[in-house]
Amino acid sequence: MGTVDPADSALIESTLKGDQGAFTELVRRYQAAVWGTVCRVLGRSSENEDVVQEVFLRAFIALRRFDLKYPFGPWLLRIATNYCIDQLRKRKGRKIQLWSELREYDQQRLLRDLAQENDSEGPGVENAEGYAKVAQALLDGLNPKYRAAFVLREIEEKEYAEVAGILGTSEIAARVRVSRARSELQKKFRAYLSGISGKERKQN
């Protein structure tokens, strides 16, 4: 679960005494981690800066209740993940929006590329934006809790114990969420592919 960093504890104590500089330093230490988690769980969005800010403001308000016996990072990421899950629940229409932004030809090509075994770089980088949209559209189809667990485990490469700590659940529940996310992604991906094949059969 990580260890307590004495520098974090010192910054927290100074913040609680009213030292704004200490809190600035604390934010600077963790903003990359929070930013990464927010962007990967929520996808690209112009609102991500506001989300990161809100996460730190919530942490600041709750800082007096934080127990210095525990590491600060997982506690902060827990606040971030819970907030992202709430945001995902409110954004039900986004999946359709992302998907409709791709022209039909792109959808077919991108989806087919995703089904191909590739070299270590993965599908071509020339249409990185398009692939990112397809990937986000697939992730958007997941239950927010599964999506958060999947991102923490697969993208951020965290151990299951850490994923469980951040999600505030047991390790078994974290494993189940990741496993379901993987299966759901495959199911949705197949549904998209079969939708395309169906259209092609009709055209022929």
Partner: peptide
């Protein structure tokens, strides 16, 4: 599928502003 998805999501550049 998972390998490709993970690679795409990992290589996405996420320029981070300094918000501290």
């Amino acid at each position: 599928l998972l390998d490709n998805l993970v690679r795409i999501l990992k290589r996405e550049s996420l320029p981070m502003p300094d918000l501290a």
